[in-house]
Design a protein around this nucleic acid. Structure first.
Lengths: 230, 230
DNA sequence: TGATAAACGAGAGCGGTGCTCTCGTTAAGG
DNA sequence: CCTTAACGAGAGCACCGCTCTCGTTTATCA
């Protein structure tokens, strides 16, 4: 009487579960994502989902990884067509892509850059996944540094080695002087800070046209980075 | 048989409920805040809470307002002792106070600057509450602008009036040139962007000592603002 | 081919949640 | 003093994540 057809392969089932979960995430947010609702959408019983994801958080983590990858791919695709040498334009385009993706997928963005959902986010998986976007932005900074005459290091770059993971940073942007690492981190983190502020409503009362403001910010950051003006 | 002594006044009950809720928020986060658990802690039945807060989100909103106020008061208190003229030091101290408060109250900070908890956050109340911290940071920028010779406006300050709420911004910092509004907003928002990145784990792999990094950031922002060095 | 073991889905159930409704009791005000 | 509003208790609804059992299906291997 039980156990209807098992037409799906395991991989297909996992994909279907993630797809349904992603749909719910996109429409009503991570807090409203329900294992039971996912099961209902797939004509399954809730306990069946646990054959594929041990826990709700595990499913959510999978969605986080996918979202990071989607964001990374989107930014890569947006920036790729720009000539490698036009680093400032690449920076602009990449930053705009981050913002556009966030606006198009606000709940996914909130899941990635808002409050971590469990008490602690599993670092290993998500950190790895997050590196794709970081890589794009870092590569732009690095390409700029590589193709230009050496720039005087940032005055604040005293003993940066003491409090940064210089090895990791250097791996992403080998041509950038260590004295400029802080500014690079500022620029990178500020892109997400601005988008978060916009999406989470903290610019209400200050910024009327977030798009235009964002353009200004991106340019200001490009100046801070010393990106060549084109 | 029912209805034990009603010793508390309404105000006291509300205060007790908020206190219990705040305790739970601080210890296990907003997601784990439960009306039933609050009621249990006060030796009440869950439905009794609804005499004071119509919904869980309403209670949470009250906590948000209180948290904003606490943060504002903390930053005010930290910055007050510094001589008014030492704007750069005031900026440093205020920024440090923001970060310290966030570290001391991570769940409160996440509630304020992380993912908004309902679909939309009630703007009126929380925006008002959030203005206290903004006021402190804005006043520092304004005092600096007031006491110094006029500084050349930011090159990017083209038609800022078009996309900022210039009236509101001007109300906070009347002495700051409109051409510098964007930088002021950048500095303000970046303080919270950095703290959020640190608290939400996005600096893992890049920043080893967030405290030292934050000092650099704050100084870099002070430079961006053109704060007088002391 | 046929037996065995693993994977799987259904179903019931546990303890928890937010929230609603009713029903006595208590306290305050005219 | 009596009326009325505020209040707390309690039961209950619909949902949640998660666990366990049990029968079925599928794949593997002798």
């Amino acid at each position: 009487m039980t156990a209807t057809k098992r037409s799906h392969s395991r991989a297909a089932r996992i994909a279907a579960i993630k797809a349904a979960a992603a749909r719910q995430l996109a429409s009503r947010g991570a807090a409203a994502l329900s294992i039971r609702e996912v099961a209902r959408e797939l004509d399954l019983v809730s306990s069946a989902i646990y054959r594929y994801f041990a826990t709700r958080d595990e499913l959510l983590t999978a969605l986080i990884v996918d979202a990071y990858d989607d964001l990374g791919a989107t930014v890569e695709a947006a920036e790729a067509p720009v000539a490698r040498g036009r680093t400032r334009e690449r920076w602009r385009v990449a930053c705009r892509a981050v913002r556009s993706w966030a606006i198009a997928n606000p709940h996914d963005y909130a899941l990635l850059y808002g409050t971590p959902v469990p008490d602690y986010r599993a670092p290993a998986l998500t950190i790895e996944a997050a590196s794709r976007v970081i890589g794009v932005l870092g590569r732009i900074m690095d390409d700029d540094a590589a193709q230009r005459a050496s720039v005087a290091p940032d005055d604040a770059g005293a003993d940066v080695a003491g409090f940064l993971d210089v090895d990791n940073v250097a791996a992403v942007m080998p041509h950038v002087a260590t004295g400029r690492y802080v500014r690079a981190l500022i620029a990178w983190s500020h892109v997400f800070g601005s988008v978060s502020f916009e999406l989470f409503g903290h610019f209400v009362g200050s910024v009327q046209d977030p798009g235009a403001y964002f353009e200004c910010v991106v340019d200001e950051l490009a100046n801070l980075l010393g990106l060549a003006s084109d």
